[in-house]
Design a protein around this nucleic acid. Structure first.
Length: 257
DNA sequence: ATGTCGTGACCTTCACGA
């Protein structure tokens, strides 16, 4: 079973690319982030045509997450994270699909540092950790997939000197991410590529793609039962190089049946 | 130092978020 995560940076602008990717790679589950549309604007019929059921949590202009399932309808098990009634961002959606509990996560960017946006990022990560602890109690395999906006290690960015002041590389962000790993979650790509230097994001600016100045922020965290079934993982890098591409590349895992 | 996108709004151009 293939489970992918893809920050598409606007589902309206990206729809042809997204449908093309689905047809070419046929993931069993696709977690989408930054759909950047209200619920009414979600093109569910387009996915249905390709055999995908979907659930989505939209928001006007920004954020927004979705879960697609091939030949199935995801059964929603969570929408938003508990712990902050003031939080109106659409960043978390969770469902049961094909015997797996899966979450589509769009973790706050957190820039600039310091400031309220960075505080929000860190508190959001605490709330995610609390939800993850609940999910760890399930018998089902669990996959927490999404754009974490955290660069976990120096070898997860093209230059160790880049983005040092950025929220994506702050010690507090990295520590919160490592806390999840310490709780028993497995970073799939880190396990399979221990030497690092596998990118999932290349900025639109400054010729980052052309120079391969990327970094890794799209992660799939696996519960122990899911990690036991991990057989392969990777990044659909070629899709980042196409016309009108997202600034992220699809990132995926393969679980044994 | 700069570089680019996508979205939305009294909208042919800017502000914002990333």
């Amino acid at each position: 079973m293939r489970i992918a995560t893809f920050n598409i940076n606007g589902i309206k602008a990206r729809l042809p690319r997204l449908l093309e990717w689905l047809e070419e790679t046929r993931p069993d589950i696709a977690c989408l982030q930054e759909i950047k549309t209200q619920d009414e604007g979600f093109p569910a019929a387009e996915f249905e045509r390709l055999g995908y059921g979907a659930i989505w949590h939209g928001q006007k202009g920004f954020n927004g997450v979705a879960i697609l399932a091939r030949d199935a309808q995801p059964v929603e098990s969570g929408r938003g994270l508990a712990g902050d009634p003031e939080d109106v961002h659409s960043r978390y959606l969770e469902a049961d699909v094909h015997g797996v509990r899966v979450a589509s996560i769009y973790l706050p960017n957190g820039n600039p540092v310091p400031g309220p946006k960075f505080d929000y990022k860190l508190s959001w990560m605490k709330r995610l950790r609390a939800r993850a602890a609940e999910l760890a109690m399930l018998e089902l395999p669990v996959v927490l997939a999404g754009d974490y906006n955290v660069i976990p290690h120096d070898h997860d960015i093209w230059s160790t000197k880049a983005l040092l002041d950025d929220a994506l590389r702050q010690p507090e962000s990295i520590a919160a991410y490592r806390t999840l790993l310490a709780d028993g979650w497995t970073d799939a790509l880190a396990t399979h590529y221990p030497q690092g230097r596998v990118w999932t994001y290349w900025d639109y600016q400054a010729g980052a793609w052309q120079q391969d100045h990327g970094f890794r922020i799209d992660h799939l965290l696996l519960s122990p039962v899911a990690a036991d079934r991990l057989v392969a993982c990777g990044v659909d890098k070629a899709h980042r190089g196409r016309e009108k591409a997202s600034d992220h590349a699809p990132t995926w895992i393969e679980l044994s049946d």
